[in-house]
């Protein structure tokens, strides 16, 4: 187990280097000089362009820039963006909001997704099953920007049940966007849970449990469900990693000051420093979440234990 963790941690190093190199290259390769258009229709004064390029190291060759960046990164310095704020500071004020949003989405996944999946699974072929199957299909088919704008229009503006936007990032404000963001994952979790449950209910060991005279609730709850939830838990864990990467579309619609809107802004302003910084953090989070999920998997299924 310990060995496995160490091995996985070591594997993170080349992954991390590779990911940052690609991200750095991509932000470097974005068309459009950061100073182009900065002064509107008029070219910026040469002194400003020169200062800008040397201040942000844009005048150096790509690999040198990357080397300098990685050197700074080792000391925990993610750089300063074009607006003059440190990237660490920008991320620090945005992460709590993105985390809250992710938690709301995850809670919805667990409660609604697994709940609906179980209901549909044990009542296979009945009305509730069809309802879950069809409604999840609809949610999966609708793009999130449609869903988000629709929810904002109906529940925010027309019915006034929820705040229209979530600029302050309070739990109350984030509830609606969190549900919108989580809806796609909820649908997948429900379908995943249902399918696995249906399959396991037909498995020999469940039939045996029934044959032994075990109560259906116990047979389903203790035996079938425990096995059926494994893939769902993996999925939920992985989606948590994705959610922590910020949600560009949802954050824009609801004006949430999270990591997604930061990434969007830095792309449109060609602010490579912020972009790389934010994505580097996301890469790390993703790697850690994947590791945790893999470890959790071993705990839940003895056959997969990492000895």
């Amino acid at each position: 187990m310990g060995k496995y963790v160490v091995r996985r941690l070591l594997m993170m190093i080349p992954t991390f280097l590779g990911a940052t190199l690609i991200i750095f290259y991509l932000s470097f390769a974005l068309p459009g000089d950061p100073t182009a258009g900065r002064c509107g229709e008029r070219p910026c004064p040469a002194s400003y362009v020169e200062w800008f390029r040397s201040h942000y190291g844009l005048d150096k060759p790509f690999l040198v820039q990357y080397g300098i960046y990685m050197g700074r990164l080792l000391t925990g310095d993610l750089g300063t963006n074009y607006y003059g704020n440190t990237v660490i500071h920008e991320l620090a004020i945005r992460y709590p909001t993105t985390l809250k949003l992710a938690v709301i989405a995850i809670v919805a996944e667990i409660l609604i997704g697994i709940g609906a999946g179980i209901l549909a699974g044990i009542r296979r072929g009945r009305f509730i099953d069809s309802l879950v199957t069809i409604s999840t299909l609809v949610v999966i088919a609708i793009p999130v920007f449609v869903l988000g704008s629709l929810a904002q229009m109906v529940f925010g503006i027309k019915l006034k049940w929820f705040p229209v936007t979530a600029g302050d990032g309070t739990w109350g404000q984030l509830l609606l966007p969190g549900l919108v963001l989580g809806s796609l994952y909820v649908a997948y979790v429900a379908r995943l849970t249902r399918t696995n449950l249906v399959e396991n209910l037909r498995a020999d060991y469940v039939r045996t449990a029934y044959a032994k005279g075990m109560q259906p609730a116990r047979a389903i709850g203790l035996h079938a469900l425990r096995n059926s939830l494994l893939p769902s838990i993996t999925y939920i864990g992985a989606s948590f990693g994705a959610l922590l990467g910020g949600a560009i579309v949802t954050e824009r619609i609801f004006n949430i000051n999270g990591v997604g809107s930061l990434i969007y802004r830095s792309i449109s302003q060609r602010d490579g420093t912020t972009l790389v910084g934010a994505v580097v953090v996301i890469v790390v989070i993703y790697m850690v979440m994947t590791l945790l999920v893999d470890l959790l998997y071993g705990l839940l299924d003895p056959r997969l234990r990492h000895e």
């Binding site: 904002q152 925010g156 229209v164 936007t165 600029g167 954050e251 824009r252 619609i253 609801f254 004006n255």
Partner: peptide
């Protein structure tokens, strides 16, 4: 600060 003018507009409407 708004990243999206539609969000600001919707807030004014509401």
């Amino acid at each position: 600060i708004y990243n999206d003018t539609s969000a600001a507009y919707n807030d004014v409407v509401a």
